[in-house]
Amino acid sequence: MNNYTKNIRKISSNLLEDGRVDLVLGFKRGTLPMASVPGIARTPEEAQGFVWDTNCRLNLANYITDQKEKIGIIAKGCDSRNIVNHIMENKIPRDQVYIIGVPCTGMVDKNRIRALLDDEIKEFKEEGEVILIRGAGQERVLDKEAYLRDNCKICTHRNPVIHDDLVGALVKEQKIEDPFRDVAAIEAMEGEERWNHFEGLLSNCIRCYACRNACPLCYCPACFVDESKPQWIGKGQDPTDIRTFHFLRAYHCAGRCTDCGACEEACPMDIQVRDFTRKLVKDSFEIYGWEPGLTLDRRPPLETFKPEDSDKFIK
């Protein structure tokens, strides 16, 4: 058991023992290899089921929206930024969450790792920065760093930005020379090519809305896709409807997206939905100097303005 897991269990059970929280949100071992999935503990015993490894890809801030109980929450860098978002957007008061911060060194890309073996991965083991995967007749030892998710590779906020406790020493933040290389690559395409890029991206979308539902930002009581008066968007497999959904979903995250990657993690069809939100992350940063979820003291870009904002595009 790694130290993080040990400390998560200890801190969580202490909190529950002392009655300082009603429940703790963390990750538990799933029923498949490479599945560390959200789980809750209401008793110190249940907290012994918590784990931490490099498969804790989802964002736990997703579960604290409008909760009434006092919640302890395990938060890596991106989760903590979404907790800040939630506090700013009045989805939960600061004193209702006890944030157990986890300095994070990134989560691995399960699809790239799965692709390494001819058949299923039967076992996944992690020792420090080294990963061992085993299939029916194959075995591979991997350097974790080389298999990080795309968003983790360029993450510059690995340490929780807000926390009440920490499970380990802070880690060194990465310095990324050109964090928006991926967006720039799409920007460099011709218009038609960009259109086709996104068309191809969405060709397998089944509209399960896992991307929306895994996202901590998507908490509207009625999503625009579910509205019927007027009905903004058709419900079928029409490509225009699918694209409209993805555009508007992404746009609703403008100035709020922390690039945690939960949307891509949840997608059953492995669609790179971050290609939509990344453009907004870039623009929010380059135009408004804004990185979401870092501070409670400034309002997000679409909630405020400056009289001197650029007018260049306006006639």
Binding site: A254, G255, K279, L280, D283, I287, F313
Partner: peptide, 12 residues
């Protein structure tokens, strides 16, 4: 509008 127009054009 800035963010919206940029994203729409980004999408092609």
């Amino acid at each position: 509008f800035v963010l919206m127009a940029n994203l729409l054009s980004h999408m092609g």
